[in-house]
Deep mutational scan, measured.
Amino acid sequence: MSIQHFRVALIPFFAAFCLPVFAHPETLVKVKDAEDQLGARVGYIELDLNSGKILESFRPEERFPMMSTFKVLLCGAVLSRVDAGQEQLGRRIHYSQNDLVEYSPVTEKHLTDGMTVRELCSAAITMSDNTAANLLLTTIGGPKELTAFLHNMGDHVTRLDRWEPELNEAIPNDERDTTMPAAMATTLRKLLTGELLTLASRQQLIDWMEADKVAGPLLRSALPAGWFIADKSGAGERGSRGIIAALGPDGKPSRIVVIYTTGSQATMDERNRQIAEIGASLIKHW
C-alpha cells in the first residue's frame, strides 16, 4: 500500500482519535458579512469528516447552483462504474471539434489522439474542462443518470439537468442544476469515506481534487503551510461562485467545507476574496 493510499485508508482512524471539535460562531459572522459585502445569498456548511456531524452552517438547506462543483460527483459516478466493471479508466475516447464547448483548455489539445477516461476526469476536476465533463456525462448516460446515481446514494436534493455550459445559467428560483450545502457536503463525505467506492477509487477521487489547479484564489489562499486540501470550485452566471473541499491540518483532511453564493453584482475577484476570507476565519478558529 502506498503512503497516499495509507493516508486515505486511515482518515477515519486518525479522526477518531482527534480531540473533540467545537464550532466557532466567528466564522458564521464572516459568512454573514460576506453576504453584506456581496449583496447576495451565501450558503455555508462545515462537517466533521469522521462523524458527519454538522459543526457550523448557514442557509444549509437553500438551493444554490452547483456550477462546476458537480464534476466531482460526476467522476465519482464514473469511478463507481469502474468498480462495477462497467468502465475502464484506460479506455480512450475520441471526439471532434464539434464536441468542444466553451472553456476546454485540455480537451482542445487532444482532438487528434483523444483522451482516456482517467485523463478526462483529471481534466474535468483539476482544470474544470467543460468538454471533458460533457464527454464523461455521455459515458454514464447524461445528466439524468448522474441525478439517479445521487438518488441511489441517498441524495434526493442534488440534481443535474443540463450539460456544460448551460448548467451554469443560475436563474433565480430555478431548481435545475442545483444542490443544497448540506446535501453536497453529505454526498461528498460519502464519496470520500464511505463504502460506495473502493479504496482505490476513493484515493483516485481525492487525488484529482488535491491536484486542483484553478481554485488557488479561494480556500487555498488562506491555508497555512502543512495543511491538506482537496477541492473543486465552480463559477456561473449572475454572480455565482462555489467551492467544495476536504481539508485539515497535519497533512490530512478532517472536515468537509461547502460554500456557495449566487445573485451578486460583485466582480469575480471580490467573490473570490470573500470566500478566501471565510476560509481564513475557519482556519483561525479551527
Score class of each variant (00 low, 15 high):
Glu46Val: 08
Pro172Phe: 09
Gly248Thr: 01
Asn168Phe: 03
Gly142Ile: 01
Glu210Ser: 10
Thr262Gly: 05
Asp99Ile: 09
His151Glu: 12
Met66Phe: 09
Asn168Ala: 08
Ser201Asn: 12
Ser281Ile: 13
Ala185Gly: 13
Arg63Cys: 07
Thr126Lys: 07
Leu136Ser: 02
Arg202Gly: 07
Pro60His: 12
Gly251Tyr: 09
Gly242Pro: 00
Lys252Val: 14
Thr138Met: 13
Gln97Phe: 15
Glu210Ile: 14
Ile275Gly: 01
Gly43Arg: 00
Leu49Arg: 03
Gly239Phe: 02
Glu210Asp: 09
Met184Ser: 03
Thr27Asn: 05
Lys144Glu: 15
Glu277Gly: 10
Ser240Glu: 09
Arg7Phe: 09
Gly52Asn: 08
Ser240Gln: 07
Lys144Ala: 14
Ser51Val: 06
Pro20Trp: 02
Glu169Asn: 12
Lys32Met: 15
Ile229Tyr: 04
Ile171Val: 15
Ser68Ile: 00
Leu19Cys: 15
Pro224Val: 03
Asn272Ala: 05
Ala15Glu: 04
Glu119Gly: 10
Gln4Asn: 15
Leu146Cys: 05
His5Gln: 12
Leu137Cys: 06
Leu19Phe: 15
Arg176Ser: 09
Ile140Glu: 04
Asp83Gln: 09
Thr147Ala: 07
Asn152His: 15
Ile244Thr: 06
Gly279Glu: 02
Leu49His: 05
Val101Gly: 07
Leu135Asn: 03
Lys53Asp: 09
Pro60Cys: 12
Thr193Ile: 14
Leu146Met: 13
Ile171Pro: 07
Lys252Pro: 05
Val31Arg: 01
Thr178Phe: 02
Ala183Pro: 07
Trp163Ala: 10
Lys190Gly: 13
Glu270Gln: 14
Gly43Ile: 00
Ile45Trp: 01
Lys32Arg: 14
Met127Val: 13
Ser68Glu: 00
Leu218Trp: 02
Ala230Ile: 07
Leu197Thr: 05
Ser240Asp: 05
Ser68Arg: 00
Val106Ile: 14
Gly239Glu: 01
Ser264Tyr: 04
Ile206Thr: 14
Val8Leu: 14
Lys144Asp: 14
His156Lys: 15
Thr139Trp: 06
Leu205Val: 06
Ser254Gly: 12
Ser68Pro: 00
Leu137Arg: 01
Ser254Thr: 14
Asp155Pro: 01
Ser2Trp: 09
Leu167Cys: 12
Phe22Pro: 05
Pro143Ile: 05
Thr158Ala: 05
Asn152Pro: 04
Leu199Pro: 15
Ala185Leu: 02
Met67Leu: 09
Gly251Val: 07
Val157Ile: 12
Phe13Lys: 04
Ile206Gln: 12
Gly239Ser: 04
Ser201Asp: 02
His5Val: 08
Glu237Ser: 15
Gly90Phe: 10
Lys213Gly: 08
Ile93Asp: 02
Ala280Phe: 10
Ala183Glu: 12
Ala276Leu: 08
Ala276Tyr: 10
His5Tyr: 12
Arg159Met: 07
Gly248Glu: 01
Leu100Phe: 09
Glu56Leu: 08
Glu119Phe: 02
Ala266Asp: 09
Ser264Val: 05
Gly154Asn: 07
Leu10Gln: 06
Tyr103Asn: 06
Arg63His: 08
